[in-house]
Amino acid sequence: MNASDLPGTVERDRNFNFGYLDERTKRMIRRAILKAVAIPGYQVPFGSREMPLPYGWGTGGIQVTASVIGPHDVLKVIDQGADDTVNAVNIRRFFQRTTGVATTERTVDATLIQTRHRIPETPLAEGQVIVYQVPQPEPLQKLEPREAETRAMHGLAEYGLMHVKLYEDIARYGHIATTYDYPVMVDGRYLMAPSPIPKFDNPKMHMNPALQLFGAGREKRIYAVPPYTKVESLAFEDHPFEVQRWDKPCEICGSRDSFLDEVITDDAGGRMFVCSDTDYCRVRGARHG
């Protein structure tokens, strides 16, 4: 699918520099990205810029995307698994207008994917880059509010505190109740917040052939997981890491192994479970349909 086929496509606006940011800013961000790739999971500070949308809407991810995007890239933007939700539509239009690159909804066709809250169900391939929007890059922040202290903890790899959080979950709920932004260890060294993706997606980060970049605009941090890097979800020996499971398959495509969203269909208790990844669901539906 090409840019012209998608609804709401806009033309390239030549009044903006390619990718909205000026070249020096992009170089600054690329330097931060290079450092982040060199130290997997380490949060690199960068000079986050004011963007034409509010913090919390993906300013970090957009700046990373704007710095790595090239004229021949094919861009896909996901918001909660869907390509047609507000955040995705607006960010896609933003890059159409400022870069004129081709966009797609197909995971396999994309070279660059910006995402919020999901990793596509279709496995990523070598050469693809996925950019995550991150609201809170520091996994320890809720337990240890002092940043000087959390930095020392990262520096010395003192991560016992993260298990205190998991302990607390089990003591309170009988199981590890953290379901999104589930903390991971990257390459056996750095503790990392995987951004608010469901823990269902955590195993996909492990040894992924694609380059994974994370941008937090308000907190001014960039971090990365290079291709084929070990990403391990934390757990206890007697309470191992588990992902969500559903009793029913997707009601549209019948998939039993994708992440399902509960959709309310009326005000009389009607509901259905459908794939959160719209592209995956559509492709499967077309194949089985």
Binding site: L143, G160, L161, V164, Y167, E168, I170, F236, E237
Partner: peptide, 21 residues
């Protein structure tokens, strides 16, 4: 903000204890 048990267990977890029970 965490329970009494987690408070006592924190040092153990910091030293690498990973068995909840």
């Amino acid at each position: 903000d965490v329970s009494a048990g987690a408070n006592v267990g924190e040092r153990l977890m910091a030293l690498g204890a990973r068995h909840y029970g």
